[in-house]
Design a protein around this nucleic acid. Structure first.
Lengths: 252, 252
DNA sequence: TCCATGTTGTGCGATATACGAACAAATGTC
DNA sequence: GACATTTGTTCGTATATCGCACAACATGGA
């Protein structure tokens, strides 16, 4: 790509949108400039553009995003057949298991939820399509990373913030890589409270008809109700069934 | 705002993202140019920028969005306390009603789902946060429109494509306005298969402690199981309880 | 009050970008 | 195979945008 085929004003604007998040509902021009490391004048123009287009509100001091911004993500969710295809299978899976079932894909060092059938709130976090979790310590993340070439996985782990969320969290890259090998061989990953105390989950890959992994599906359960040791016998058969039902549906 | 406070390259890029959707997973440069009514050269630069940043994939012919684009919408969902605040109440509501419960806000002529607790698939459409429906024929849309000044509502209806989805769909602006008055007085809206045959729903507004309507919540049920006439007695008390539980939580 | 600090808004020269048109390549049609 | 159409790419130039420096304003503490 040539230098001139890049619209830096657009790229800068997207960076400004991403500056909003979790603890950043309201951003002043100066705050947004610090977060994005862009010039204040540039950020100001981007924010005023967002406001002008209705993607943001401006009270003269702070900018907040409006629901119109969801149109952007929705362009992906409705444009990609995967979420709509998976949803009914997740509903069925979730009902039979009596636990929440989810589907996700990989984006950099994170997994991104693209569909979910929730039963009861077991996690402290609110998960909806678009939600992100670090891949290295999520069952679906392990399955998705296990599908990649090892060199790529090492690069991703190097970029990941390998945080010790609980006493159980594996953070050593070599230990994780060994676990990914096991996942690749055995075809599933189990997480025993590595993300959050009290939460276990089990995931399998969703492959298309050419054997490429395009997503992962999982079942999550409270550790108090379902010990990690029982996850496999209870839920792996259900997950495998769903996996088999999906494969012929995923052409190309 | 001054002329120079608007970054048109950014605005054009956002328009390109929105060109993707439902039947538009893959767009060529020329297709995107037609949809956005921008010059092919300009669209090409925007798309190449998206690809360079990892928001899109490019196979040399077609562009497709990647899950990274969800970061943009997620910036809103995680930045706004409303979805996370509503979710547990929707879960509870949904469980007690035995039906799907949702929450939405208004964006132009559409309602946008910001949280949802689904029970069984009753609609043909797959609804997730970010999903949109026309406001005039959705129960939550009626509630949200009823909260606005009548002049504004007329303007919105004028911009809406008032489509006859089913034999029941109300499309006459005056008839709709009369219905909004009733909704405002009685505090709830019921839709009897106006959006889709076989689907009934009932909605109430969610007000903050100053009495401003900030969202709507609803319960949807299959008409075969719950006739429209029974929606009120079955679900209105539950909705009112949830509404009351939420009010003190919604400051400012 | 005055100053220190931090914020937002603005004018300007240097630079980057958009436009339209022209060209090249691919595709479809007879 | 020749022609017409559509699509992608390149180029020169007029125009828009960037980042800087500075001005204007607000806030809070000595």
């Amino acid at each position: 790509m040539r230098e001139t085929d890049f619209v830096s004003g657009f790229a800068r604007g997207l960076k400004v949108i991403e500056a909003f998040g979790e603890t950043r509902q309201r951003l002043s021009i100066a705050e947004a400039a610090k977060l994005t490391e862009l010039d204040r004048a540039t950020v100001r123009r981007s924010l005023l553009t967002l406001a002008e287009l209705g993607y943001a509100d401006y009270d003269g001091k702070f900018f907040t995003l409006t629901p119109k911004i969801l149109r952007l993500g929705h362009a992906y969710l409705s444009a990609t057949p995967l979420p709509a295809l998976l949803q009914p299978h997740l509903d069925h899976l979730s009902e039979r298991a009596g636990q929440s079932a989810s589907a996700s894909v990989l984006d950099g060092t994170d997994i991104v939820y693209i569909a979910r059938a929730s039963q009861r709130r077991v996690m402290s976090i609110n998960l909806t399509p678009g939600s992100r979790l670090p891949a290295y310590c999520a069952s679906m993340g392990r399955v998705l990373l296990a599908a990649l070439p090892e060199s790529e996985v090492r690069a991703i782990l190097a970029r990941s913030e390998l945080k010790q969320n609980t006493a159980n969290t594996k953070t050593d890259p070599d230990e994780l890589i060994a676990e990914f090998r096991r996942v690749r061989t055995e075809g599933y990953a189990i997480i025993d409270q590595e993300l959050e105390i009290g939460l276990c989950s089990i995931a399998v890959p969703v492959d298309n008809d050419r054997g490429e992994t395009v997503a992962a599906i999982n079942i999550g359960a409270p550790a108090a109700l379902v010990p990690a040791a029982e996850m496999k016998e209870r839920y792996l058969p259900l997950l495998k069934e769903t996996q088999a039902a999906l494969r012929p549906l995923l052409r190309r």
